[in-house]
Design a protein around this nucleic acid. Structure first.
Length: 859
RNA sequence: GCCCGAGUGGCGGAAUGGUAGACGCAGGGGAUUCAAAAUCCCCCGAUUGAAAUAUAUCGUGGGGGUUCAAGUCCCCCCUCGGGCACCA
């Protein structure tokens, strides 16, 4: 009897797939194409068990689609630019390029033993000049389309990494990588005009039917559309040149509840005042200093400074009197107009502010049936503002227009038209989404391919001079951008006039690299960014798989890029939404084992040092450890599972099988030693079963039962595999394996069953499946065999057992022929002992028969 | 604060409104073995019960409701997780 020897089996089949170029993707119009993609990895140095889960899921989809007759594209590449390479160069010397390519080589060698059905011929890294050169070419195209611009901008400056961060990269006021408190600086920066697409990116979300609702919602909130009114107050007692304040509001219906006007400390008017008034300057400086962490904002008091300026609406509107103009710390310059009117009666923030500065609280509306009408309320009388939802009907005591009773939304619509009718305001739609600042003052990124010429200004590099390659001779001994201090790299000539000029030294945000790699995979060696025919054939990505952490940034940028690429002719029409279906998978977690240390800090123990017994863990010396279940893997907590060691110990198929079993794919799965062991035992059992069947002969009985179970398994497993129900599929496979192991059917039937089992397992455990295929004397690769089809006629049971409920509680059951008439079933049910007893000679009030399902007798 | 999502045995988790707990882990019992490992078989929600294929009672975070029938649908509440946030 041969053993389940993964060290022989797995490399053998991987070599066979390689030799026969099984996974090479070639255009073939005769078959439907299917493009499955997992988010490509950053080459950090080693693969993580999370990679195993991510790529295994993609591989299951790819192999299943392949078996169902699709021409599958399943590529792999490396998101290879970024700061860790520079950090490594700073920490341990060497060059980011060497560090990166060496990591890629290591990780490729670690990934390959997983037996993924990847077309490795399409592999590339984003730091390959062939890739980033095409990106530069596209950047120039975007410039021509007006999708790129420069502006002086207040940026988030990370003082440790010495770089600019996107808003999205600032988390709680700290740099997403360094954790350093972010500072505000003004620099000339490059931007993509993603805001041009705000409306389109928002509207199109509705059509992303196969995206998780959660991700769609997050994107909607991120784009943040709001409809409101923009209008001006006339101001008096203001500096020269300022006779109006433009404000934006989403609640114009509350205008007659206004009791002050507020402007941001960064508002031009505030800046003008600051220049002449030291007290105001001091106040504004204090506002800017305030931390931007969520915590700091929570605690930050509303601060205001009365400028002495007075504001009023246009002369003939009446009602709203002179309003004091405050500089207030809670008003952001980069949203709306940087100025608001405050309505303390219907806004918590304004309410807080009004209380503090003793400003009037004026109701614009009141709850239906209420008789309150506050025109000026001392804070102690009205503790809270009245803030109903926009679809709640309220009664207006100071309406702009429209009936007295209407919902907030109706009132807003009426108010906007009232503003427009009176000619001092207009309806305006605003988005929270800002343009994408892509400049990075780093070395290890794609150089922005432009030249600064004294005479011609900013000039794009000529395309024939691309790629603008990164120079190799750089050092990282001092912070900042090595490109800035390189002696010669910057020096070039103007592509337009030929005079000496300087290269741009900013490089691109690495999110640019990952915003179009999926398109490049369709023709990775093309000498244009894409080959339009290849793109037309392979796009869109039919199934995209990755972590929820990319729900906003990466996916939104990719959606923008697809549109921008279409407008430059790099993608055909219909690719605006590049990912037809998205699946976000959970993490692989692992328990943390810790004991209290002498200094009070916990000591973390490696899993291999802990013996588990009855749910408790003990060290070798008998000390009990605390167990924290399901924690994110972290090197510092010593709870990282190394996939390489797992593959070494159990083989790739076990690792693949385990990460798919137990938990639904979208949820986190906890890696446990016992679970991995169990997976390994099961695969051993299947292998043993196959050996047994291969060696067996002869006749048996009850083939039909086995074949029925087989077709049921085909049905159930297929359903699971096709819908990301991998854990459910695996449960069915366990069940079918048990049935087969116990079956006394004939050799022919059992052989058919094990072949089907292998086929059904092949997306998850491809090596073992190939092995069984061969053991049973089949020729060719199981990978090339067609997916089994369930025979409908064998799925139908001859007889069914139906529970009988009496008043909704299960009391008995009857077994009847599956096709029995409802009336017959009713008759049988009424004759059932339990029913007869319960009826006690009476008649049921109601008798419900759901054919094939259940009988309910209501008494 | 706002917006989502989730609460089912000791654990991970199954369950088109139709027999709650599939499958796996852990646990218990047995077979095999000189013994062990491996393997195979059986039991395994709680309560009551000496026990039993008990046709007993309770049971899917809590409380109401719709329905012949609710883990599943509706309303309120609690807890946990995630996202966003002085966004006017």
């Amino acid at each position: 009897m041969s053993n389940y020897d993964t060290k022989t089996i797995e490399p053998k089949w991987q070599a066979r797939w390689d030799e026969s170029e099984t996974f090479l993707a070639v255009r073939d119009e005769s078959r439907p194409k299917y493009y499955v993609l997992e988010m490509f990895p950053y080459p950090s140095g080693r693969i993580h068990i999370g990679h195993v889960r991510n790529y295994t899921m993609g591989d299951v989809v790819a192999r299943y689609m392949r078996a169902t007759g699709h021409n599958v594209l399943h590529p792999m590449g490396w998101d290879a630019f970024g700061m860790p390479a520079e950090n490594a160069a700073m920490a341990i010397g060497g060059h980011p390029k060497d560090w990166t390519y060496s990591n890629i080589a290591t990780m490729r060698e670690q990934l390959k033993p997983l037996g993924l059905s990847i077309d490795w011929s399409r592999e590339f890294a984003t730091c390959d000049p062939e890739y980033y050169g095409q990106q530069q070419s596209m950047f120039i195209d975007f410039m021509e389309k007006g999708l790129v611009y420069r502006k002086n901008a207040v940026v988030n400056w990370d003082p440790i990494d010495m770089t600019v961060l996107a808003n999205e990269q600032v988390i709680d006021g700290k740099g997403w990588r360094s954790g350093a408190e972010v500072e505000r600086r003004e620099l000339v920066q490059w931007f993509f005009k993603i805001s041009d697409y705000s409306e389109e990116l928002l509207d199109a979300i509705d059509n992303l039917d196969n995206w998780p609702a959660k991700v769609k919602l997050m994107q909607e909130n991120w784009i943040g559309k709001s409809r409101g009114a923009q209008f001006s107050f006339d101001i008096e007692n203001s500096p020269e040149g300022f006779d109006k304040i433009e404000v934006y509001t989403t609640r114009p219906d509350t205008i007659f509840g206004a009791s002050f006007v507020g402007i941001s400390p960064d508002h031009p008017l505030a800046k003008a005042l600051e220049a002449n008034d030291p007290a105001i300057a001091e106040f504004c400086a204090a506002c800017r200093k305030g931390g931007t962490t969520a915590e700091a904002l929570d605690k930050a008091e509303k601060l205001g400074y009365d400028t002495g300026i007075r504001a009023k609406l246009g002369p003939d509107v009446g009602f709203v009197g002179d309003l004091p103009v405050y500089i207030a710390n809670f008003i952001l310059m980069d949203y709306g107009t940087g100025a608001i009117f405050g309505c303390p009666g219907h806004d918590q923030r304004d309410h807080d502010f009004a209380k503090k500065y003793d400003l009037p609280i004026i109701d614009a509306f009141r709850p239906l049936g209420s008789d309150r009408d506050y025109t000026y309320v001392m804070p102690e009388i009205l503790a809270e503002p009245y803030v109903p939802t926009k679809d709640e009907k309220v009664e207006y005591v100071r309406p702009c227009k429209g009936p007295d009773q209407m919902t907030g939304q109706e009132a807003i619509d009426h108010a906007i038209s009232w503003f427009e009718d009176h000619g001092f305001g207009k309806g305006v739609t605003k988005y929270r989404l800002r343009d994408w600042g892509l400049s990075r003052q780093r070395y290890w990124g794609c150089p922005i391919p432009v030249v600064h010429c004294d005479d011609c200004g900013v000039v794009p590099e000529k395309k024939e001079n691309l790629p603008v390659k990164l120079p190799d001779d750089v050092t990282f001994d001092i912070p900042g951008n090595p490109l800035d201090r390189h002696p010669t790299w910057r020096d070039t000539e103007c592509p337009s006039c030929g005079k000496p000029a300087k290269r741009e030294t900013d490089t691109m945000d690495t999110f640019v690299d990952s915003s179009w790699y999926f398109a490049r995979f369709t023709s990775p060696r093309a000498d244009t960014p894409t080959d339009i025919d290849d793109a037309a054939y392979w796009m869109n990505v039919d199934q995209y798989i990755g972590g929820i952490e990319h729900a906003i940034l990466h996916l939104l940028y990719s959606r923008f890029f697809a549109r921008a690429m279409r407008s430059c002719g790099h993608l055909p029409q219909g690719c605006e939404e590049p990912f037809d279906a998205l699946f976000t998978q959970g993490m692989v977690t692992h328990a943390i084992f810790k004991t209290p240390g002498d200094d009070g800090r916990p000591v973390y123990h490696y899993p291999e040092d802990v013996d588990l017994k009855d749910g408790k863990g003990f060290l070798k010396d008998g000390t009990e450890v605390d167990i924290i279940p399901s924690a994110k893997m972290s090197k510092s907590k010593n709870n990282v599972v190394d996939p390489v060691a797992i593959i070494e110990q159990y083989g790739a198929d076990t690792a693949r099988w385990f990460v798919l079993s137990d938990s639904p794919p979208e949820r986190d799965v906890e890696w446990t030693a016992s679970g991995a062991e169990a997976a390994y035992k099961h695969l051993n059992r299947v292998h043993r079963l196959s050996t047994e069947i291969a060696e067996g002969t002869g006749t048996g009985s009850d083939d039909e039962t086995l074949l029925k179970a087989m077709h049921k398994a085909i049905q159930d497993v297929t359903l699971g595999v096709a819908s990301f129900g991998f854990n459910a599929s695996i449960a069915k496979l366990y069940g079918f394996t048990n049935t087969l192991a116990k079956s006394k059917a004939s050799h022919a039937a059992r052989r058919e069953a094990i072949l089907t089992l292998a086929k059904l397992m092949s997306p998850m455990t491809p090596h073992l499946a190939e092995e069984i295929w061969t053991m049973q004397g089949e020729t060719g690769l199981i990978t090339d065999a067609a997916w089994p089809k369930a025979d409908e006629s064998l799925l139908v049971e001859d007889s069914v057992t139906m529970p009988i409920q009496i008043n909704g509680k299960r009391r008995s059951e009857i077994t009847v022929p599956a096709d029995m008439e409802k009336a017959e079933v009713e008759k049988l049910a009424l004759a059932n002992d339990a029913v007869v007893k319960a009826l006690a000679g009476g008649q049921p009030k109601k008798l419900i028969v759901v054919p094939g399902r259940i009988v309910n007798v209501v008494i």
